[in-house]
Nucleic acid binder design. Structure first.
Lengths: 222, 222
DNA sequence: TCTATAATTTTGACTAATCAAAATCTTTTT
DNA sequence: AAAAAGATTTTGATTAGTCAAAATTATAGA
């Protein structure tokens, strides 16, 4: 059985791998995200390799083995399901949940996790809009991205609304923010945390970034 | 901050103290419930004393300091609230929850715990009928007694089941012998070592004295 | 009281995880 | 290409928690 330290290392290695699209994660980066000294990360890399979680390339970095990736995916699943629970069920705000989930993910058993998944209605995305890996470690591959990721003047088509919140869904429907609908981003003010969209019929919609993150879209060639 | 090992030691010391009504818990007993060797318990006792959690009396045992008792009570609160959540919200059976709560209780933050408490409606008893200590570490004292202590024709309400034995818990659940349930003693044969109960709906249950001692109840004015 | 048994403590050793600081490679700059 | 800067690894040490087995102390029985 992996200790929770091991679980943390593997999870972070996975996240970096996915984010940066690299195969070997350098030690320094691992040390930084985990808040340990580089020396610690190196010695940990050796233990992880000894136990078959990663391959270690001295002076280059580590990559997950199949076994390591499986465990890491499972940690991501735990983390994101727990975040969903904290927001949906207990009413936490987005900015508080990461730290809490970080602790709980090591303590929750497979059994409790599955019951929780049922209870939540088997959500496929967490409150941040990130995909929740399936039980088998598969991650929902989506080409669509949150509205907030697109630049000004992009034409796009709404693909899905992540948030299950009733209020938001009501608002979205009213604003024609529904799958299939075509929009153009006519304004994006990062510092004001605001995005303005225009429908093909000229209707305007303003969204804060928090809301814009809940709306997934695909670019659309007009 | 206390490690989860420390939390476990303190919680078990508290539970033994409450159950056996003793003030100094001998090392051997601690070692047994925690599944460690006696030597480990002894060396741990010294660390616990060094950090002000317990007083250690060589060759006699340990007792909790005020600080230690406070933490231990808090652990009991966590444990019992989590058990309640697992049963009430996620639909677990009685016999599965102890182990799960045992892990989660170390990972759940005060913040999440309070939200959970709200969500559950601030319950005062856990699914076994044991009192959930308040935030301040106060425990609800109830004068429930074993079924076998009551006389014929008494109306009573089940408060808790002492035994954690799986078979017995399963049987108890089936027979509606669960906290909150109302019964009347309609038969008691001391010489035959037998007690007969009737639910408010007329269902009959027979118990031997040995089992009747495991079920705590309070008299109930009908 | 003296001995056998039970409980507790000591001792020496081990693993996981960490740090600080020195040593060693790599990469970049001049 | 040499020097400087940056990243990585080594080395030596520390802490928490644990075990096995020997040593010590209590307790109970004859």
């Amino acid at each position: 059985m992996a200790t929770s330290t091991v679980e943390n290392y593997l999870k972070e290695i996975l996240v970096i791998t996915l984010d940066d699209e690299i195969s070997k994660v350098p030690m320094g980066q691992i040390a930084k995200v985990l808040g340990v000294t580089p020396g610690t990360a190196t010695s940990m890399a050796k233990s992880l390799e000894r136990d078959g979680w990663v391959r270690y390339f001295p002076r280059v970095g580590v990559s997950l083995t199949r076994k390591g990736r499986k465990l890491a995916m499972n940690m991501l699943r735990r983390h994101r399901l727990l975040e969903t629970f904290l927001v949906e069920t207990l009413g936490f705000d987005w900015d508080e949940i990461h730290v809490e989930a970080e602790e709980l993910e090591h303590a929750i058993s497979e059994k409790v996790l599955e019951k929780l998944d049922d209870f939540l209605g088997r959500p496929r995305f967490d409150p941040h809009g990130d995909p929740i890996p399936s039980k088998g470690g598969m991650i929902q591959q989506i080409a669509s991205k949150p509205l907030s990721d697109f630049e000004k003047d992009t034409n796009l088509r709404i693909e899905s609304i992540i948030d299950q919140n009733k209020e938001f869904l009501r608002f979205a429907r009213k604003a024609k923010l529904i799958p299939g609908q075509l929009f153009k981003i006519i304004g994006k003010e990062v510092c004001a945390d605001s995005i303005t969209l225009k429908t093909s019929r000229g209707k305007l919609v303003n969204l804060g970034f928090r809301s814009a993150e809940k709306v997934l879209a695909l670019p659309y060639e007009s």
